[in-house]
């Protein structure tokens, strides 16, 4: 901000800025340090980690935990399921939002207002968890991978975002294409879709993060199908039930294990922290790319439907 440019800093200003910077530095540290702490604990000597001796810097660095993790338990399967639902669900959602957002801008559509309202109302009202679950099981989507994907295809909020965005695109572009004889599908594919790429990137990134992070649907819908658990669900199980981990560790080290072998190879704590790190990593990696879409996303979102 240039608000104070040209003015001399008074003593009060200096005190204010010192306090202000101190506060934000501390808060930023509080937001960053946990991830750093998690990370150094997954690459440090496992025995030191077990007793909580790794605090500020890594000690006895090794990557064994990550290598072992992939051969252990059902993490691989969970990663597959999570990546699968994120890719498929996000792709379909973005396409559907783009297309539906385009369609509802067409004034000549039959029953357009009704269609648009039917979509928007669902943002403010839902039947509740139990009826939703019963509906899903009635549709055969419990214990079924598609239960993750199909319900998330139509996302009312994203449709509104795309609609608002398309309305801001000059109508002449579309009209000239229409005069040249292009149908709706052609106009959408050749003009609208490429033009709305920025807003589609925004909703796709948020959608992908949502898919990656979601775990209640895994708990509620897939309880009968452990092979369909998402990574978050697995992590939750590892963090909360120690008996599962015991089994996991003995599976990982070939069955016959002594106390000492456990301590030196894998222990519960390193295991839990490593799974957590693997789960966080993709988010932290796409985060720098997401950042530029924040303000854009939140500001378009502020526009009413």
């Amino acid at each position: 901000m240039t608000k104070h440019a040209g003015y001399k800093l008074t003593g009060g200003d200096i005190a204010f800025h010192t306090l202000n910077y101190a506060f934000f530095t501390l808060f930023s540290l509080a937001c960053l340090f946990p991830f750093y702490y998690l990370f150094i604990n997954t690459i440090s000597d496992n025995e030191l980690v077990r007793i909580g001796a790794v605090r500020l810097w890594p000690r006895g660095v090794h990557l064994g935990n990550y290598i072992k993790l992939l051969s252990v338990g059902d993490i691989g399967q969970a990663i597959l399921v999570t990546v699968g639902r994120s890719a498929l669900g996000t792709g379909l959602m973005a396409l559907a939002s783009a297309f539906m957002g385009y369609l509802v801008t067409k004034k000549e559509m039959f029953a357009r207002r009704m269609v648009y309202r039917a979509v928007v109302i669902t943002m403010y009202f839902n039947a509740g968890l139990i009826p939703w679950f019963l509906n899903m099981s009635m549709l055969g989507l419990t214990g079924n991978f598609w239960g993750y994907v199909i319900p998330s295809i139509v996302a009312p909020f994203n449709i509104i975002l795309v609609k608002t965005y398309i309305e801001s695109v000059p109508a002449e572009l579309e009209e000239s294409a229409a005069i040249d004889g292009a149908g709706y599908l052609r106009v959408f594919a050749r003009i609208i879709f490429p033009l709305s790429r920025p807003v589609l990137a925004t909703i796709a990134i948020f959608g992908a993060v949502g898919h990656w992070n979601s775990f209640t649907d895994s708990i509620i819908l897939m309880s009968s199908q452990p092979r369909l658990y998402t990574l978050q669900h697995r992590l939750y199980i590892y963090l909360t039930s120690t008996s599962n981990l015991g089994a996991l560790m003995s599976a990982g080290s070939g069955g016959a294990v002594t106390e000492a072998a456990i301590a030196s190879t894998l222990n519960m704590r390193t295991m839990q922290l490593t799974v957590a790190m693997v789960t966080i990593l993709p988010i932290l990696m796409v985060y720098p790319f997401m950042q530029r879409y924040f303000e854009k996303g939140i500001m378009i979102g502020a526009v009413k439907g």
Partner: peptide
């Protein structure tokens, strides 16, 4: 996710 927040809290 909240699971990861819990993981952080746990750590």
């Amino acid at each position: 996710s909240w699971v990861l927040v819990y993981a952080v809290a746990f750590a």
